[in-house]
């Protein structure tokens, strides 16, 4: 049920993305190398390529400056709990914790050159170019709390990047022609399952000309899909099967080693 719901949303998004917007100066067509990433037993990650074509509108004067393309990929959202350790006499223990809700559990920012050269801070905030724009906390009640929140936010960005769950790649977009590009999305093996949205914006001299949204689904298939499904829908049988398997293997090992 959940899968089909996701799929319907996904189709709707594709349809919306394909609708023409007559008011804009530039048109952009984007297509993905795949719309479904299937996780099987030998899954170690995947690469999805977005192809895009920017069509110049003849009615407008052609801009002299080249196009810049920035893509963001948001995986399914979730909650991330962060602990901060501090010194208590001779020992180090958890002193504070913060819960961030609605954080994309995978996030990628893809461009052809560093973001600072493409867009200013306001534009970056408006287009949500960066995981930091998703880390919202309730407004701080004091100056000290504000500092504390900032510390947590910085740590989140750093740790998620270290874990490979947040990627900033300033060479993932390739301009093949001035108006034709590819954007490579690297999915790590531990990418969460669910719906991924890709927002691709085309800019010129820091001005956003057009933004197009697309998406793909990551889901478990085959034996992995079957097992994950069984663990949720039949937890009793699943647990019983697991424990019987363990006891049986223990017993078999015993028989094998009994001979000598």
């Amino acid at each position: 049920m959940r899968q089909s719901g996701l799929f319907a949303r996904f189709i709707l998004l594709l349809a919306l993305a394909a609708l023409p917007r007559p008011s804009s100066a530039q048109e952009m067509v984007v297509t993905l190398s795949t719309r479904e990433v299937a996780i099987t037993s030998n899954f170690t990650g995947a690469e999805i390529t977005a192809f895009g074509l920017i069509e110049r509108d003849a009615r407008f004067a052609t801009r002299a400056a080249p196009f810049d393309v920035v893509a963001t990929v948001q995986g399914p959202a979730g909650e991330v709990l962060l602990h901060q350790k501090d010194r208590f006499g001779p020992i180090w223990l958890t002193a504070a914790r913060k819960r961030f809700g609605g954080v994309p559990l995978y996030f990628a920012l893809l461009s052809a050159r560093p973001l600072a050269e493409i867009a200013d801070a306001d534009t970056a905030a408006r287009l949500k170019l960066g995981l930091e724009h998703y880390l919202t906390l309730p407004p701080p009640l004091s100056l000290q709390q504000g500092r504390e929140d900032a510390g947590f936010r910085d740590a989140m960005l750093r740790l998620r990047a270290e874990e490979g769950a947040s990627i900033i790649d300033a060479s993932a977009v390739t301009m093949i022609r001035p108006n034709l590009f590819t954007a490579k999305v690297q999915l790590p093996g531990k990418a969460p399952t669910g719906l991924y949205l890709i927002n691709i914006s085309v800019l010129s001299e820091g001005v956003v000309l057009r933004t197009v949204q697309s998406g793909f689904v990551v889901r478990k298939v085959g034996i992995d899909g079957l097992l994950a499904n069984a663990a949720r829908s039949q937890p009793g049988y699943y647990a019983l099967t697991t424990i019987l398997m363990a006891i049986l293997l223990g017993w078999i090992a015993n028989i094998i080693f009994r001979r000598d």
């Binding site: 979730g78 909650e79 991330v80 901060q84 809700g101 609605g102 947590f152």
Partner: peptide, 14 residues
């Protein structure tokens, strides 16, 4: 002394 003062302890998909 821990190398990293911050630790991500849980990530829960919604």
């Amino acid at each position: 002394e821990p190398r990293e003062l911050f630790v991500i302890t849980a990530t829960e998909p919604e």
